[in-house]
Design a protein around this nucleic acid. Structure first.
Lengths: 204, 204
DNA sequence: GCGGTTATCTACATTGATGTAGGCAGGGGT
DNA sequence: ACCCCTGCCTACATCAATGTAGATAACCGC
């Protein structure tokens, strides 16, 4: 009887890639509970033993996922900041907001914030990102009203946009209810913030 | 041999309160993994069966914790906004930032963002909070430069502070490394944001 | 085509966490 | 002083998830 099971043989790279993609989807759609080996393996049509063969352990898979998502986050930031290479800082900040707040990335940071202790030592800085920000800061600074410490203000503006983006991605759908606001308010927030930054930079 | 075990008999309210306090501490210090019945029960010196006696199930305990933390979050916001009842909106916004970004509350929102599906329908709005914000918005608005929609701007300012606070609480320690910034920058951010809001409100 | 490598499978062992059963004991009521 | 209610405990049952062992089959090189 035993009908022979269909087997797809992947290269190790293919396999790891498929698995991590499925894992990320499950993280978005089912939260942390979705990140167990059985479900993730099922989601890409393999047995959980095969998954363990590739990643060694559940923790190994999760570490790899953090690493992959962090890489992608940084790549997205780089992409966002580079696709508009001309001196248009407001657009850049809007793109930064977009990159940080969009679904998966905010979930990653929320996970790192609330997840176990084993993950916190990752998330290393990256040279290209450092270079990009090193270039972004003065570009932004020279659009600011003159003053002794425009550089510092520029950095803090970036930081403001980044924290707002993360907060928006993590709790943007819950905060309006929490603060007794109309739901539509939240959706218009990113565009508004972009306009504010624009105005702030072009005003004086 | 069997040494008689010391038993403290609590009222159900005492027990629930102790358990939830311990659970919240464990959430802060060990993340979601710390929220199992055995460890939480051990943390307040009882058997896990006793904990289940009070909350029915692990999910029941977690639901109760979400509810309690949400209540406390709202109470903290109310407290923050009321302890300075005079018309000093910048202080209010700073207090709001403080209330939202401080450890436990940001962890709660991160948890809700990444946790299972069973929790998302809680977090109901609350009448006193609605009243407070209804009062805060016009107070803030009349400090803004005159214009057709100061109310809307006031709301968005509040929303900006709130998202920034949540993002700061969730990822404030990781963002500097991610964005290749000096670590000290993050610590000075809340105070800076407060000053900015002050300046924005008293300027024109 | 043949063989070796290894990705993949099934089946099982193990662990940890959840939930249950039944009895013990603290404290208030009478 | 007694009794009852119920909070509390020990011990066990169960289940889900992790990880392991050994067999099998897909592909690549010869």
């Amino acid at each position: 009887m035993q009908r022979p099971v269909s087997r797809r043989r992947r290269t190790p790279e293919q396999a790891r890639e498929e698995i991590l993609r499925a894992a990320e989807t499950r993280l978005r759609e089912h939260g942390l509970d979705g990140l167990n080996v059985v479900d993730v393996a099922a989601a890409c049509g393999m047995s959980h033993a095969t998954l363990l063969h590739h990643f060694g352990s559940t923790a190994g898979m999760r570490r790899a996922l953090v690493e992959a998502m962090t890489d992608r986050l940084l790549r997205d930031i780089i992409e966002a900041l580079r696709c508009d290479p001309g001196p248009e800082p407001p657009e850049l900040l809007r793109d930064l907001f977009e990159a940080l707040s969009s679904g998966g990335h905010a979930k990653l940071l929320a996970w790192l914030s609330v997840g176990g202790d084993a993950l916190s030592d990752d998330l290393s800085p990256s040279e290209p990102v450092r270079a990009l920000f090193a270039a972004l800061v003065p570009t932004l600074a020279e659009r600011l009203p003159p003053g002794p410490d425009r550089q510092r203000i520029a950095k803090r503006l970036i930081f403001l946009v980044a924290t707002a983006a993360v907060g928006y991605g993590v709790a943007g759908d819950r905060l309006p209810r929490l603060l007794a606001m109309e739901a539509g308010e939240a959706e218009r927030f990113p565009a508004w913030l972009g306009r504010q930054i624009s105005a702030l930079l072009s005003e004086p």
